[in-house]
Amino acid sequence: MPHMISPGASLPRLSRRALVAGLGAAWAAAPARAVAPPDLALRAVWQDFRARFLLPEGRIIDTGNQGVSHSEGQGWALLCAERCGDRASFDLLLAWTRGLLRRPGDHLHAWRHVPGAAQTVSDRNNATDGDVFIAAALLLAARRWDEPAYAAAGTAIARDILRLLLRHVGGRTVLLPGAGGFEEQEHVVLNLSYYAFPALRLLARAVPDPAWLRLVADGVGLLRGAGFGRWDLPPDWLTLWRADGVASLPSRWPPRFSYDAVRVPLYLAWAGLQEEAPVQRVLRFWAERTHPYLPAWADLETDRISPYPANGGVAVLRQWLQARAGGGAFQMESVRLSRQDDYYGSMIKILVLIAESELS
């Protein structure tokens, strides 16, 4: 039987200070704030990433996954292009994303494009994190380049996220990973790495609604309690039961802290919540001296770690989180893409640079 906990049991209510910090991330500041010039270190890494992973037609290739493209990759790249003031790349990415991934009937995007397939977009279900970042990038771009069409498009996506992807389950407002396939009669399945708090802040400004505040507060509370295994780590995927709000490891996915869940501490720290328990637990796991290397994943049922090390992006993320948690300095200029970095490892490095440039 899988280990089970109740996220609401014996947990402190989210403080007003923590909530304000979570909603007040630097890159989601009020629209009246001046648009910051691109950071030189970030721009250099983005130029390298663009040369390696952005195809001429405007799609980002996942080199670790047979060259497919995802809405999350498009959303992250749109954010990178905006943060670097690279409008040519932004418009190229946006045109491909709209042309190939837009779903009929709403403003969300299909989650995957498979090049060379008879039907390159065979599954029209969305991935919520992709839509969150596409919307956030559009809203930021509208301010940077004074483009009302971007604002209208980002607002429309935010409105559909609010309308189609928020649910009240087990006493919490939660964010579905997609519009279809994650709701059962007795439970829902969640992806904890989709709680991108800095981006959600932007969407909440575009489409004001108290539901966003409940989503953020309940999301942080959920993350506080959703720890499993020897190291009390957040899993990539989580089952939340409707009747009592108990969380458990799902049966459909490996019970791991892995490639998805590494973004949990990233987004919390990016939102100024580096003191939250999930961040501290992950740092303790990564600092354990018995590990022969930085693990790529941990099995939360057996406590077994991966037989190979994590990618370079996770190594940079650990370094950044350690600096944030300990009050030390993080040298952005030292971050570079290596030949061994695939799409995902490279993108984690860029997201760390964006977070650091905004918070500092």
Rank of each mutant, 00 (worst) to 15 (best):
335 V>F: 13
235 P>V: 08
269 A>W: 10
139 L>D: 00
156 A>E: 00
281 R>Q: 15
244 D>Q: 14
14 L>D: 08
306 S>Y: 09
246 V>L: 13
179 A>G: 15
333 E>Y: 13
15 S>Y: 05
331 Q>Y: 09
21 A>R: 15
87 R>M: 09
264 V>M: 03
235 P>R: 01
253 W>D: 11
142 A>W: 10
182 F>I: 13
154 G>S: 12
143 R>N: 07
98 R>M: 08
191 N>T: 01
259 Y>T: 07
93 L>Q: 00
281 R>E: 12
104 P>D: 15
97 T>R: 05
269 A>H: 08
6 S>C: 11
325 A>C: 11
38 P>G: 02
124 R>W: 10
285 F>L: 14
356 E>F: 04
355 A>R: 03
36 A>D: 00
216 V>R: 04
93 L>W: 00
128 T>D: 04
330 F>G: 09
253 W>P: 01
2 P>Y: 02
279 V>T: 15
148 P>C: 04
69 S>W: 12
323 A>V: 14
212 W>K: 04
333 E>T: 14
167 R>G: 05
229 G>S: 06
313 G>A: 12
272 G>I: 07
236 D>M: 05
74 Q>W: 05
272 G>V: 07
304 R>P: 00
140 L>P: 01
254 P>R: 09
196 A>Q: 01
67 G>D: 12
215 L>Q: 08
279 V>C: 14
315 A>W: 06
281 R>D: 12
95 A>T: 07
33 R>E: 15
235 P>N: 02
301 E>I: 06
167 R>V: 04
162 L>M: 06
351 L>P: 02
156 A>N: 02
166 L>V: 08
113 H>L: 15
169 V>R: 06
57 E>K: 00
55 L>C: 06
325 A>D: 04
126 N>S: 10
296 A>N: 10
328 G>A: 14
39 D>P: 02
308 Y>Q: 12
355 A>W: 03
64 G>L: 04
137 A>S: 02
291 H>F: 13
230 R>D: 10
328 G>T: 14
98 R>F: 09
62 D>C: 09
12 P>D: 13
228 F>T: 02
123 D>P: 08
101 L>T: 08
107 H>S: 11
77 A>G: 10
11 L>E: 15
131 D>P: 03
272 G>E: 09
134 I>F: 08
336 R>H: 15
236 D>F: 07
39 D>C: 07
255 P>D: 06
221 G>Y: 06
